[in-house]
Nucleic acid binder design. Structure first.
Lengths: 170, 170
DNA sequence: ACCGATTACTTGTCGCGTCAACCAACGCGT
DNA sequence: ACGCGTTGGTTGACGCGACAAGTAATCGGT
């Protein structure tokens, strides 16, 4: 049953090496900047962005969870904290009384808008501006290919709505 | 003092979107596989690999921390657990009695060797085999460029020894 | 030789995420 | 209309990592 897996060659292990190195550094760098300048976790930022970019004024927990690749408990905890901080409101849904609708408060919108420029600047500084246009295209294709593989994995929701991409200053 | 940061265009935000999506999925996928098949965290795996690949039979905490981009407290905790599980030994260093040397036990080496094939297989399945040779090269360059930016950041150690790259089945 | 500063690590506390258990509401079949 | 499986969400306990503080040894100057 156990298939033999070929060792990696130089080309492969270099790419893998780079990927893992980036993994161990970039997320914490992004988190640090947001935390320092805006008191937000990257994930909190993503949740607020998702709400802000949604056409509807309010979203269901499940919808946010799908859009952000988060588990429901995680989202629930985070929304609890955000609500305590007054950035978000939860209200029971009228049509389906199991569901809860989450919406941005004006404070939440304000905080988000305050946080966006710094976050974009960091994204530029660490990633976008480090790459040539060709590399940007290549990166899009590469991540697309990898995400496609991940979608077939057990344990992951296949398709996500994906908000943060259109990072705009509203 | 506050500089205006241009919004992202389509090309840029697509790349950024892909990157963040990958970030939210790939690490957990890798962790899950290792945890399920070998009872190891990805980071524990990296620590064991670092020890295994080192020319010396033993490494100082600081050296491992640098090689793995980990903080010293984190590494200390992890080594504590690994030691309790018998995969690693800590012994005070003779020349510098502040330092502690960490070494693989034979159990640790055995567990690591058992874990490697599955990990490589997953790396192949989710990343390497999803990409063309050209994309592999592109990925190496891209991660290199980003890591270079990260090296200039405050809070990160610039250069790391980087073990996992040469994933081999010893 | 001794005192302050630095290095090398450890320990404790706290926050976040996961997992498991739980509860409430919906909805379908009979 | 009743029961049972499913869906939507919350809660609690545990594990891991970050941060801060503490300890112990070494170095460097005088």
């Amino acid at each position: 049953m156990k298939r033999r897996v070929p060792r990696m060659n130089d080309q492969e292990s270099q790419a893998w090496l780079g990927l893992t190195a980036m993994f161990s550094l970039l997320p914490s760098a992004l988190d640090r900047q947001l935390q320092r300048d805006s008191g937000l976790t990257h994930f909190e930022f993503v949740v607020l962005s998702t709400l802000q970019l949604s056409p509807e004024p309010t979203l269901r927990m499940t919808a946010i969870a799908q859009a952000t690749d988060a588990t429901l408990p995680r989202l629930s905890h985070v929304c609890g904290r955000l609500e305590k901080r007054g950035l978000v409101v939860r209200s029971p849904c009228a049509e389906d009384r199991r569901a809860t609708n989450v919406g941005l408060t004006s404070d939440g919108r304000r905080e988000l808008i305050r946080a966006v420029p710094g976050h974009i600047a960091t994204a530029r500084r660490l990633v976008i501006d480090a790459l040539t246009p060709d590399q940007l295209d290549a990166l899009t294709e590469i991540t697309g290919a990898i995400i496609a593989r991940l979608a077939d994995e057990p344990g992951n929701p296949p398709q996500a709505y994906r908000a943060e991409g259109s990072l705009t200053q509203p």
